[in-house]
């Protein structure tokens, strides 16, 4: 069986389904027809299922988890975003969230599609059980921050929109709280990412912290979200400033993931 061919095929189908769900959600937000929103959810879940198959095929082909280079992480990042969105969708049934989260997943998947899909064996530094734990927690953490960013954008749109008929959008208070809770979870996972990375770095490079640009930017992201959480909890920061902070935090996440690899020489630049 030609796993690479089918992996490529399923990846492309997943990309198209994410694009489709983005378009359908857009129509839903504009047209406000509940049935259309359901199709957006179906497209997201379908895309996620096929994306999962694509990743499984890559695991079979490479005999390791697909978490080792920029393409694999970008694809996993998109997968993490959709996973977090689907979990929220299944628990809370807030269809409109998809309209703000799925475009982010589609963009990340689109970015992955521009990268080399070549399967390379693991370099010595990556041959560690910590790889799975470290990167998988990063996927969940970054996915959560993306969802929180989507919710924050929805809040910002909602609070500015002159559209009085907002029945498809989440209530602003709900949007605000949910964004905060998702950030709380992402923050916890980011802590795990940093700690597991430090333990792994100690085993591989002798130092648990070396101010490598990637780890420094993870710390910066952690600090930004720390400020958000403190302001929110102790100063009652809610609404618009909190939403703007959630967006800034996600920009930091994106820079940590993409920007550091492109602009800053790093031990983590696994291209």
């Amino acid at each position: 069986m030609d796993f690479i061919y089918y992996e490529d095929l399923t990846f492309t189908i997943a990309l198209l389904l994410y694009m489709l769900s983005t378009i359908v959600f857009f129509i839903y937000l504009v047209g406000k027809k509940e049935k259309v929103g359901k199709y957006g959810v179906y497209a997201s879940i379908g895309g996620f299922a096929i994306h999962t198959i694509s990743m499984i095929l890559r695991v079979i082909e490479s005999r390791r988890l697909p978490l080792s280079n920029q393409f694999e992480f970008a694809s996993s990042f998109a997968w993490g975003i959709v996973l977090c969105y689907i979990l929220i969708q299944l628990y809370y049934k807030f269809t409109s969230v998809g309209g703000f989260v799925m475009p982010l997943a589609f963009l990340m998947m689109g970015y992955a599609s521009t990268l080399s899909k070549e399967i390379r064996p693991l370099m010595p530094a990556l041959q560690s059980n910590w790889l799975t734990f470290h990167v998988a927690s990063a996927v969940i953490s970054y996915g959560s921050f993306a969802v929180a960013c989507g919710l924050a954008i929805m809040y910002l749109y909602n609070s500015r929109s002159k559209d009085k008929d907002k029945k498809v959008f989440l209530d602003n208070e709900v949007c605000d709280y949910l964004s905060y809770r998702v950030i709380g979870f992402g923050y916890l996972m980011l802590t795990i990412v940093i700690v597991s990375g430090a333990i792994w770095a100690k085993a591989a490079w002798s130092r648990y912290w070396a101010w490598d640009p990637k780890e420094t930017w993870s710390l910066i992201t952690w600090l930004i979200y720390s400020v958000y959480i403190h302001l929110r909890f102790n100063r009652g920061w809610k609404g618009r400033p909190a939403a703007l902070f959630a967006v800034i935090g996600f920009i930091c996440v994106i820079f940590t993931f993409v920007g550091v690899n492109i602009f800053l020489p790093s031990l983590h630049s696994y291209k």
Partner: peptide, 24 residues
């Protein structure tokens, strides 16, 4: 105070950013 703590958080973040931009 928390206010001062937030300022320090941000200062550490800014210094960390500079450290990733300026070759060390």
């Amino acid at each position: 105070s928390l206010k001062f703590g937030i300022i320090l958080f941000l200062l550490i973040a800014v210094y960390s950013i500079i450290g990733t931009i300026v070759p060390q």
